[in-house]
Design a protein around this nucleic acid. Structure first.
Lengths: 242, 242
DNA sequence: CAGTGGTCTAGACCACATG
DNA sequence: ATGTGGTCTAGACCACTGC
């Protein structure tokens, strides 16, 4: 005789929301352990199994990370295993490890139609634009143009970008407290314009992958919009389907 | 004092394997219901919770499909909801529903280097090659060249392909008893050659997405290798990352 | 109404990491 | 030895479907 159920929501879903709220509020820092399942069960007044199911889902979404015997940790882009977690580019001929980022420019502007729509900010509001190069070994492979809401990234400069060792998202995390949770990419094929062609060391009009990405933090809030142009002469974009 | 554990495998994993074996052996047909969790628990001599965890994973892998109140069903490409399940192409401007397949050619050949490697068949063994067009509404958007191991697809002809209503994989399922479980795609950008350009109604050298796919059935056995050329004038390839 | 999947609990025990 | 996540059980009850 409980729950007359047009509004039925399982307990573990509610627990999941509570954990997400705690994460969003910064109660536990990225890379650090959250309380044990037992402790959470007591805190939320449910059984351990129910907490477990909530954590299971968050873990499947790469928001938490379980390590048997050690604990459950807040996923972090600072973790080398998760660096470039969203980059699906793979060298054709095995080899080559981590790519390296080379920021070229960083300037302020005002949001146009597209930026406004993708970042959910008002038309004309301040944004930051970054241009950068991604290299595998010494080979330039990607040119990115990255759009950020100015409000969230106050004080960001080219120098900060250039001095940072590691992925862009780990910088976002450490320096601006923003954790990228998921992203959505739209891929098309385009011809290289002259400037891009020069940066990538390919001929003008060479076909390139255009990868537009919107990246989100908690609550499906968009934080970054970028457009990458990928040279697929010696790399490909790998996607596993199931 | 059980399981001295270099070889530890949880019970539910073993149950999962047993269910997969039954599926592979054709004990339950695609689209049909498998026994209830209770029945399976009895059959395998474990608790319902353990069966449940096994089914949970198979369901997450899109191999089974749960429907509350009705039962658990074998996933089928014949199901309209799963038609073109692996096709990530989306119209730029909303609209347009299901694509439609237009087989153009179908002939026999012998496996070359690439086909041999991708399909795990011997060099020179018989293969079938299909060329087809995919249209959204009346617009041609994809040209596919599809390579199949001849042994598995005896009797396949252009007529059969052309008469078939529905996706290619639902034909594989119904007519050859082959169920595609997962696939892996490698995407690059290429320039349209003349013949392809004509088929797609674009200019020669237009940048296209080259999508190479290997599709697998049970036991990670490759069954199909295809190369699609996608026109991204009015469509894009959508990929969700997490 | 009966049958199915879905949730929740409480408790026992196992595997892994660390001191 | 202790604490953590991981597995397994048995049983109760809820929500959904269809007869």
């Amino acid at each position: 005789m409980a729950n007359l159920s047009p509004t039925f929501s399982p307990l573990y879903q509610q627990i999941k929301s509570l954990i997400l709220q705690a994460l969003e509020a910064g109660e536990w820092a990225p890379g650090q352990a959250i309380p044990s399942e037992q402790d959470l069960a007591v805190r939320f007044g449910v059984s351990q199994g129910t907490v477990r199911k909530a954590v299971d889902e968050l873990s499947a979404e790469n928001i938490l990370l379980r390590r048997q015997g050690k604990g459950t940790f807040v996923a972090s882009h600072h973790d080398p295993r998760a660096s470039f977690r969203f980059l699906r580019l793979v060298p054709l001929a095995g080899g080559a490890g981590q790519p390296k980022s080379f920021p070229l420019e960083c300037w302020r502007a005002r949001a146009g139609q597209e930026a406004s729509k993708n970042l959910h900010v008002a038309l004309g509001s301040p944004i930051i634009i970054i241009r950068r190069l991604l290299k595998f070994d010494v080979k330039p492979v990607v040119v990115d143009e990255i759009y950020l809401p100015g409000e969230m990234f106050q004080g960001l400069t080219l120098e900060i970008l250039q001095e940072w060792e590691g992925s862009l998202y780990s910088l976002f995390e450490t320096r601006f407290g923003l954790r990228m949770i998921r992203a959505s990419e739209r891929i098309r094929a385009v011809a290289a314009e002259r400037q891009v062609a020069e940066l990538l060391g390919v001929a003008e009009y060479t076909p390139l992958l255009s990868v537009e990405r919107v990246a989100y933090t908690y609550g499906d809030k968009p934080v970054e919009w970028r457009r990458g142009l990928y040279s697929t002469a010696e790399h490909f974009y790998l996607n596993e389907l199931s």
